[in-house]
């Protein structure tokens, strides 16, 4: 049973990002480079937050403290990615075979967000997946056997959120619309703060609001990228 758990949780957490990668990123080397760079950027942000966490000895045991710094550094590195991409945009476009790249300037934001999110998701879930191989599951002291599936679901949520956050965030800086930037940071704090409830095994209280935030964020990202409900409906109805 447990090997099934490993594969199904992997599918839940990484299936959607993998499909998105395959359809939108994999066919363009430059996009792959951007995605890897973003993933690396996330790792760096993680390293810096680790250093801070390690340096501040008295607060080490407080989860909320480490979490706050990790969010702040992630957002700082997202801004770093924004600056980097905007500076190298022209050059990347030049070496790319696909000269359509950048036809929508938030395309880069999407790709880097996907990289950012995938790396954070990988880090969040890999240890859990390693233990999901079994033969045991949670329940001896605390927790239930749904721990693994909820972890995978939360990981998927975070990956997608990171993707959309990047789109909104980049657009916010492009347009000097700091409300969008504010939404990204606030919702990031909100979702991560919700996850603190997991130690009390309130899985539903974490997952449902997180997915609501995801839906809102996705919609904002969609609008930011230039889409509208009307155009979407039109694209479906006027297929022929």
């Amino acid at each position: 049973m447990t090997l099934a758990e490993f594969f199904s949780c992997s599918l839940l957490a990484f299936g959607a990002p993998l499909v998105m990668f395959a359809l939108t990123v994999a066919n363009d080397p430059v996009r792959i480079i951007i995605m890897i760079a973003a993933a690396f950027g996330w790792l760096l942000s993680f390293l810096v937050s680790s250093v801070v966490w390690y340096a501040v000895v008295p607060l080490r045991s407080y989860l909320a403290f480490g979490m706050c710094f990790a969010i702040i550094f992630q957002e700082l590195f997202r801004y770093g990615m924004y600056v980097l991409l905007r500076k190298t945009e022209a050059g990347l476009k030049e070496i790319s075979d696909n000269h359509n790249i950048g036809s929508n300037k938030l395309e880069m934001a999407y790709v880097s967000g996907l990289g950012f999110g995938t790396m954070s998701g990988a880090f969040a879930l890999i240890n859990v997946l390693a233990d999901s191989v079994g033969p045991g599951t949670l329940g001896l002291y605390t927790g239930t056997e749904y721990f693994f599936v909820t972890s995978a679901a939360m990981t998927l949520c975070m990956i997608l959120l990171n993707t959309f956050w990047s789109v909104i965030f980049f657009s916010g800086f492009d347009d000097k619309n700091y409300i969008k930037v504010g939404w990204v940071i606030v919702s990031h704090f909100f979702v991560s703060g919700l996850s603190l409830l997991n130690s009390k095994e309130l899985y539903a209280a974490t997952i449902l609001p997180s997915y609501i935030v995801l839906a809102i964020t996705a919609y904002i990202a969609f609008r930011t990228a230039g889409g509208s409900t009307r155009s979407l409906i039109q694209s479906i109805s006027s297929r022929s």
Binding site: M1, T2, A4, E5, F7, S8, C9, S10, L11, L12, A13, G15, A16, G134, P135, G136, T137, L138, G139, L140, E145, Y146, F147, F148, V149, A152, A153, L156
Partner: peptide, 19 residues
């Protein structure tokens, strides 16, 4: 330890496929 019933795995598989 507590061995799993497999329900968690099935939920994950179905929701993973859907997602």
């Amino acid at each position: 330890f507590v061995s799993s019933s497999g329900v968690g795995a099935r939920v994950a598989a179905v929701s993973g496929a859907v997602a």
